[in-house]
């Protein structure tokens, strides 16, 4: 091997490892060339803002997929947690109140209760997967339907509006940066630390990498699985808070299909459905790819219907490239 060939080798490896970043930059350059306002600070902030809700969900599902699971109930978890947060955080002047006689609570109460319940719902998913052994696909599919029903039951089908300023705050801006983006970045940091620097993350990789070996290595697989799903639930709770803040209301059908966007973002970011492979930065970049694509295609005037077709092709294309990369590694 001469050094030039080795240099090429290294170059290809870099391209492979960070390929998705190049794709993102490439897309941004193209959109910028066609429509220079794409790259304006305002528009970039808008992209990040739009990315935040399913970006936060993608963080949770990244961990689940690393542990070789899946969560199809994330959208309904967001709706359910959102309804809880909203119902406990309505203005006294609201026309329809879920709890008519409830006094205005300190804003921490609806948020804490909402996050707690979201975490418990996630843990329940994890419980079914870990203890009964049914596939995560089925467990969370069932949970989706259950939660949507629970949402309708909870508000009798009504949307919950007129939220207190403390909740609406999460949809506004702080020093010019949207709160959703700030929350997203904090959550990404939190997930990064959990995944790479704690036992919790290490166990997720172990379970996805080889569940039998994990068991033999003294890892409590059931408990770790429950924790991973609970974490995803928590992320759905946070996403729900941001949702309530941005939209200023939550209805029982909210966030429908968001889980698919989150899973797509994770997948584009290189998290492997076969488990054991995945990164937080990949999930973030994958989310941005989708968000840039949606925004950019609109900015350059591509038909909304075409946007969906392009998005779908990008998802499939990303996975094809990713699988080839992993195949080469073998």
């Amino acid at each position: 091997m001469n050094t030039q060939a080795e240099g090429m080798q290294r170059f290809y490896k870099t391209i492979q490892k960070y390929g998705i970043v190049f794709v993102l930059l490439f897309m941004m350059i193209i959109f910028m060339v066609i429509n220079p306002t794409f790259i304006s600070v305002n528009n970039l902030i808008k992209i990040a803002n739009q990315a935040s809700i399913y970006g936060i969900m993608a963080l949770g599902v990244t961990l689940i997929i690393i542990a070789r699971g899946i969560d199809l109930s994330m959208g309904s978890q967001v709706a359910f947690a959102g309804l809880i947060i909203a119902s406990l955080g309505q203005l006294q002047t609201a026309t329809f109140k879920v709890y008519p006689n409830l006094p205005e609570l300190p804003v921490i109460v609806p948020i804490a209760v909402g996050l707690l319940i979201a975490t418990l719902v996630g843990a329940t998913n994890g419980f079914f997967v870990a203890i009964t052994g049914i596939p995560a696909f089925i467990a969370t599919l069932g949970m989706t339907t259950i939660l949507r029903g629970a949402c309708l039951l909870y508000t009798k089908g009504q949307p919950v509006t007129n939220l207190v300023p403390g909740i609406v705050f999460f949809g506004e801006s702080l020093f010019g940066i949207p709160m959703p983006v700030i929350v997203y970045m904090l959550m990404a940091l939190l997930t990064y630390i959990l995944l790479n620097h704690t036992r919790f993350g290490s166990d997720a990789y172990a379970i996805g990498g080889n569940v039998q070996a994990a068991r033999v290595s003294g890892i409590n697989v059931s408990l770790a699985t429950i924790k991973v799903f609970a974490f995803s639930g928590l992320m759905c709770g946070v996403a729900a808070l941001v949702f309530a803040g941005r939209v200023r209301s939550v209805h029982p059908g909210a966030a429908t299909g968001y889980e698919l966007t989150a899973i797509a973002a994770t997948t584009i970011g290189g998290t492997s459905q076969t488990g054991g492979i995945g990164t937080v930065w990949g999930a973030v970049v994958g989310t941005l790819v989708l968000s840039v694509l949606r925004n950019g295609l609109t900015m350059v005037g591509v038909d909304g219907y075409w946007q969906q077709i392009v998005e779908g092709m990008i998802i499939i294309g990303a996975v094809i490239i990713d699988m080839r990369k992993n195949a080469k590694a073998n």
């Binding site: 790479n196 620097h197 704690t198 036992r199 990498g209 080889n210 070996a213 054991g276």
Partner: peptide, 29 residues
Amino acid sequence: KDGIFPILDIRFNTTVANLKHYIRKSNLI
């Protein structure tokens, strides 16, 4: 089947059973 974590590195494979000894007081690895 139940020994190696094939897609993970040697560091992980070496220390996975002993992880608790690498966890600092701050809970970080």
